[in-house]
């Protein structure tokens, strides 16, 4: 799993704004960003600040309902994904995300939002290591990820991850 700092760096590159160096505070390793306009602390706070700085408010949500969904998933990232220790935990997370995406193209509404970006960078290394068998198991998550990586500005310098569009394994895989 990518470190919180790397995820923030990637998103700021996508947004085209500078974020400087990210340091960590305390035993919980809370990310801190020091900029000219002040210091921001915490993953969600920093991301929202960056989106506003890039004048891409719609990434944060256009109304209260959408904003709540963004908050919910960023919190999910900090509270659950970041604290995954064992493989079992990771699998549980992937399974949940897969279920959520079974009837959706993006996490929020019908467009790319901060959630998609945050989760894409956070999960990149995890998904890269998945076997084809697992990719098929997390079919909906794979479809979402594959759609995300098609954009050069999102994928940036990282490698394409290959997904199979045909079913490779029969039986209980999905």
């Amino acid at each position: 799993m990518a470190t919180t700092g790397d995820t923030i760096q990637s998103i700021s590159a996508y947004l085209g704004v500078k974020c400087g160096k990210i340091t960590y505070d305390g035993p919980e390793k809370i990310p801190v960003m020091k900029g000219k306009t002040g210091t921001r602390k915490g993953f969600t706070t920093i991301l929202k600040h960056l989106a506003r700085a890039a004048e891409k408010q719609n990434l944060i949500g256009e109304n209260l309902g959408e904003k709540a969904v963004v908050d919910q998933w960023l919190e999910f990232k900090t509270c659950y994904i970041d604290r995954c220790g064992a493989e079992k935990d990771t699998n549980q997370i992937l399974k949940e995300l897969n279920t959520y995406l079974s009837d959706k193209v993006y996490f929020l509404s019908h467009r790319v939002s901060l959630i998609d970006l945050a989760l894409y960078y956070t999960l990149y290394t995890t998904i890269k290591e998945l076997t084809f068998y697992d990719k098929q198991k997390y079919l909906h998550l794979s479809r979402w990820f594959n759609n995300m990586q098609q954009s050069n500005s999102i994928r940036q310098s990282s490698l394409y991850i290959t997904f199979s569009k045909t079913q490779l394994y029969s039986g209980s895989a999905h």
């Binding site: 479809r143 759609n147 199979s164």
Partner: peptide, 11 residues
């Protein structure tokens, strides 16, 4: 569409 977001390509 099970494994695809759109019908042709990814856009």
């Amino acid at each position: 569409l099970k494994t695809r977001t759109y019908l042709v390509g990814e856009r």
